[in-house]
Amino acid sequence: MSQDIPESTRRAERSDHSQWNWLLVLPLFATLIPMLYNRTSPELFGIPFFYWYQLAAIAIGVTSTLVVYRMTRR
């Protein structure tokens, strides 16, 4: 184990590898499968689900990129 640490530290110094990067895939699943949200109900303030869901999904995108940025900052 102790030998792994210097190796992984060295790797972190010269690469962008991080487990957190996998979070970037989340927004793709949330938005690129229209079957998930292609319907009108439930409505929100009279706006069909299709629209308010996708507007809300912007927050998923922002959160993912923000978390990856904060967690991989050096």
């Binding site: 962008d16 990067n21 970037l24 895939v25 989340l26 927004p27 793709l28 949330a30 938005t31 690129l32 292609n38 299709f50 629209y51 996708q54 507007l55 999904a57 912007i58 998923i60 995108g61 993912s64 990129t65 990856v68």
Partner: peptide, 22 residues
């Protein structure tokens, strides 16, 4: 509805290019 593709398009673009652009 098809015109609303601009929203998912501009949601997924940033996570996709995040690592590439740096």
């Amino acid at each position: 509805a098809i015109g609303f593709f601009a929203v998912p398009y501009t949601i997924v673009v940033y996570p996709i290019v995040f690592l590439v652009l740096i």
